[in-house]
Design a protein around this nucleic acid. Sequence first.
DNA 1: ACCTATGTTATCGC
DNA 2: GGCGATAACATAGG
Length: 260
Amino acid sequence: MPELPDVEVYRRRLAHGALRRPVDEVRVHDATLLEGVTAEALATRMVGRRLTGTARRGKHLFARVSGGDHLVLHFGMTGVLLTDDVEEEPPRHTRVAWTLRGGTRLLFVNQRKLGHVALTGDADDYCRRHDLGPDALDVDGPALRRLLGGHRGSVKALLMDQSAIAGLGNIYTDEVLFHARLDPRRPADGIDVREAARVHRQLHRVVRVAVDAGADPARLPRGWLLHAREQGAPCPRGNGEVARVRVGGRSTYFCRACQS
DNA sequence: ACCTATGTTATCGC
DNA sequence: GGCGATAACATAGG
């Protein structure tokens, strides 16, 4: 699930359901996902404190912890952030659980263990150390044009490069390029000004619509490519059929008739 | 047994 | 240094 729209949904979930209540317990069910912090240190630095605010940069979610720390959550390919009640049985693959005063519980659930849970004193510094570029929604037209012009690789590889633009993953990159009607294999520095404007416009539109739909595929428009990610599927725009190629090491779906 | 999968990182070769 | 390809991480499903 977790690309920018999904993580934004998690951020709002945390902001609306988990702030300002003291942390009563931190339970680490699987420490493999902890990055640079032990289970003991995570508990010591969080129990008795409160989450006081949220931020997101690309696919990384930050929650300010009273006392000066910031909780960092990264979801990998299969992570989700849920809230439930302490009385309930936590779902399978729950890796870390925070019990909050009043009985709400925050759950970091991750089937494949590719994500991270960390603590940092400085979120910007964390982003620098992890080479995170600006959030995709903060990249304006001229900045995007500069990025495109500076890369000889494919436009898809650039859009997925988190050090260039943070937030787009495999699914939404394909979606943006489908709506911008560009072949994902096109060299980024060969994209002209009009095409770059389409990428910028569609990037913002696709992300906004996805966030408004709660990043729930079932609620995303019928005409979107993500419903047709299968070789030979009819193109959602009714032209050709969907092709599958490999770009930047990832399965890439696009319509040869619509995208050039 | 094989392939695939919404992510990231290290390594090798050009 | 940039870029593509590949494997690795860990797990599940077809």
